[in-house]
Amino acid sequence: MNAIAIGPLVFSAERFAAILGIGLFLLVAEIWALWRGRGAHISAWAFRAVAVGLLSARAGFVLANLESYRQAPLDVFAVWQGGFAPQVGIVGFAAVVLLSILRGAAVVRPLVVAALVGGLGFEVVGIVSGADTRGRLPEASFADLSGAPVTPAEREGRPLVLNLWASWCPPCVREMPMMVEVAERFETVDFLFVNQGEAPEHISRFLRRARIDGDLVLLDPQTALMEQFGALGLPATIFFDARGRMQAVHVGEISRAELTARVQDLQDDQQPAGDET
């Protein structure tokens, strides 16, 4: 899976690439500032560019998903759950660079160079993790709570959201009721919640206490899917298109808006398996 662990912290490759890119941008700007002797000036503009870019990216995503945030307004501040519009962020970043030009600040060159280095770092992480960001639906079968076998790969032809979870995982417990609710809204996208390593009796008790329907729950007592997809932590939500190809991975708790946006993308891109060229 496209995930990277640093001590107890687990990041998706996409999020880690963004953090690395921003870090490299600020580092290069600071080095340039020290080299040219204009530390405070260049550093201030670099910080403004990052701050405006991030705020713009977040605001763009929130505005594009207002319906989801109306249902959970506090999620606007839960940035760790994901939810940024990169294109809007780039516009915000570019606006700060343009402002520096209009004010005659001699910081355009260091900002551009720092941005190129940061962008290169972002792309390198994408290339390195690229082999792990694509996969297909699991071929193995997993029992549901009644004991009947279910094979995810046999669901090709419809998009699928695969959530790996456990009842001892607080983020899993927090997000599951919301995810089940979203699953009920999208009739053309399947959801499966595959428990990792727990006994059926324990899972059933948990679902009863949480008042969650277990029809979409599968059992993975050997945590085979965590191994197959290289999941470094739970929860992990994997998105597959109608042809059974992995399209995205979200590591950690996911917000309603992020989940809805990802599922909407799968639904909009849905094509019959036979149409693949």
Results as ranks from 00 to 15, higher is better:
residue 62 V to M: 09
residue 155 R to D: 06
residue 167 S to T: 09
residue 40 A to L: 11
residue 146 S to A: 04
residue 48 R to E: 11
residue 233 G to H: 09
residue 267 Q to V: 01
residue 274 G to M: 12
residue 65 N to E: 05
residue 90 I to D: 04
residue 144 D to C: 00
residue 65 N to M: 07
residue 196 Q to M: 11
residue 30 E to C: 11
residue 173 V to Q: 08
residue 204 S to M: 11
residue 93 F to M: 10
residue 188 T to S: 15
residue 71 Q to V: 02
residue 61 F to Q: 03
residue 266 L to Y: 08
residue 103 R to I: 02
residue 174 R to Q: 12
residue 109 R to T: 09
residue 113 V to P: 07
residue 159 P to N: 06
residue 46 A to G: 06
residue 120 L to F: 14
residue 219 L to T: 02
residue 117 V to F: 06
residue 98 L to W: 14
residue 218 L to K: 02
residue 277 T to W: 12
residue 189 V to R: 02
residue 72 A to P: 06
residue 249 V to A: 12
residue 2 N to S: 14
residue 16 F to T: 02
residue 213 D to M: 01
residue 86 P to S: 04
residue 160 L to E: 05
residue 102 L to E: 08
residue 14 E to D: 12
residue 211 R to S: 13
residue 97 V to K: 02
residue 223 T to A: 12
residue 57 A to K: 08
residue 72 A to I: 08
residue 237 T to Q: 08
residue 214 G to M: 07
residue 153 A to N: 07
residue 25 F to G: 03
residue 110 P to S: 02
residue 103 R to H: 13
residue 241 D to K: 07
residue 36 R to F: 03
residue 74 L to M: 13
residue 96 V to H: 03
residue 271 Q to D: 01
residue 186 F to T: 04
residue 9 L to W: 14
residue 130 G to S: 08
residue 206 F to Y: 12
residue 65 N to H: 06
residue 145 L to I: 00
residue 53 G to S: 15
residue 153 A to Y: 04
residue 207 L to I: 01
residue 224 A to F: 06
residue 186 F to V: 09
residue 151 T to P: 01
residue 204 S to V: 14
residue 172 C to I: 06
residue 148 A to M: 00
residue 255 S to G: 13
residue 42 I to T: 13
residue 213 D to I: 08
residue 4 I to A: 00
residue 174 R to V: 09
residue 144 D to W: 05
residue 250 H to T: 09
residue 176 M to G: 06
residue 80 W to C: 01
residue 104 G to L: 05
residue 90 I to L: 15
residue 129 S to K: 09
residue 32 W to E: 08
residue 71 Q to H: 11
residue 2 N to G: 13
residue 121 G to A: 06
residue 98 L to C: 10
residue 60 G to K: 12
residue 73 P to L: 06
residue 238 I to T: 07
residue 48 R to D: 11
residue 48 R to W: 15
residue 67 E to Q: 12
residue 116 L to S: 10
residue 119 G to Q: 07
residue 14 E to Y: 10
residue 187 E to S: 15
residue 254 I to K: 01
residue 154 E to K: 09
residue 188 T to P: 02
residue 44 A to T: 13
residue 58 R to Y: 05
residue 148 A to T: 00
residue 98 L to Y: 14
residue 147 G to F: 00
residue 239 F to L: 06
residue 35 W to E: 10
residue 125 V to A: 05
residue 67 E to V: 10
residue 23 G to D: 08
residue 109 R to W: 12
residue 21 G to E: 08
residue 202 H to V: 14
residue 235 P to R: 09
residue 85 A to E: 11
residue 224 A to H: 08
residue 212 I to E: 01
residue 165 W to S: 04
residue 14 E to R: 15
residue 37 G to I: 03
residue 236 A to D: 09
residue 172 C to W: 07
residue 158 R to C: 01
residue 244 G to V: 05
residue 265 D to F: 13
residue 219 L to E: 03
residue 32 W to C: 10
residue 179 M to L: 15
residue 70 R to S: 13
residue 3 A to V: 12
residue 214 G to T: 05
